[in-house]
């Protein structure tokens, strides 16, 4: 057993994956913890107990502590990419001013929110976004001057940003970022406004 663990650790390190100890991947323990949560959590307001149910990606990211083995990562990425619904009208960019309001708002989807609360993107919670808002988080990378540094609203850039907002796991498996489109947290129109926020040359992000 010990040799197996060591061999796995060595292999994992060779592949550039953070070593995961045997205890971390004990499926019996995860099953037990899941049952415990199902017993001890209850629906409140819009936050129903069904939210505890994991899809394939959530389960794998939990099990591997966010560091998927290369083959699993490749499969997950392809599956998540297939979930992205790009806009039928072929237009990716909306209104950047509206995008900044969505980026500022961290509202929505908690048990203290109403069913008709308009969800925000909560972007500033984790990212620097504009140059003027100083209250920003650092869990994600800075997005300040995102479009300016990448050649602006090219077709490829717009498609990438739209896709990333829709399903971040299609690009970085086990990314910390919510899958806003996949979960229906943000609408197509809201995602378009956020694409504009990042890529429109007029946007405060690119000043």
């Amino acid at each position: 057993m010990r040799t197996t663990v060591l061999a796995f650790a060595a292999l994992a390190m060779a592949l550039g994956i953070a070593p995961v100890s045997a205890a971390d991947t004990d499926p019996a323990l995860l099953t037990k913890a899941t049952a415990l949560m199902e017993k001890d959590f209850q629906s409140r307001g819009i936050a129903k107990v069904e939210r505890l149910k994991q899809d394939d990606v959530m389960s794998l990211c939990t099990q591997y502590r966010g560091a998927l083995p290369a083959d699993v990562a490749k499969r997950v990425q392809a599956e998540q990419m297939a979930t992205i619904k790009f806009p039928a009208d072929g237009k990716y960019m909306g209104d950047w001013k509206n995008g900044d309001k969505i980026a500022q708002s961290g509202r929505g989807a908690t048990w203290s929110d109403k069913p008709d609360t308009v969800n925000g993107g909560g972007c500033y919670n984790c990212h620097r976004v504009s140059g003027t808002e100083l209250s920003y988080g650092t869990i994600g990378p800075s997005l300040y001057q995102f479009g300016k540094l990448r050649g602006g609203p090219t077709e490829a850039n717009m498609k990438y940003v739209y896709g990333k907002l829709y399903n971040s796991q299609a690009y970085v498996p086990c990314s910390n970022m919510p899958r806003f489109g996949y979960h229906g947290v943000l609408t197509e129109a809201q995602i378009k406004d956020l694409v504009a926020l990042l890529l429109d040359p007029e946007s405060i992000v690119n000043q």
Binding site: A33, L36, R51, L52, N125, S135, I139, N176, P178, H183
Partner: peptide
């Protein structure tokens, strides 16, 4: 296990915000 458990409409676990040094939400 509960700490690392990802679920919900935002895909969050406790670990999402609390497993790296020097991070912030807003300030």
């Amino acid at each position: 296990e509960i700490f690392f458990y990802r679920a919900g409409p935002y895909d969050f676990a406790c670990a999402t915000c609390h497993s790296e040094d020097g991070k912030r939400i807003r300030l």
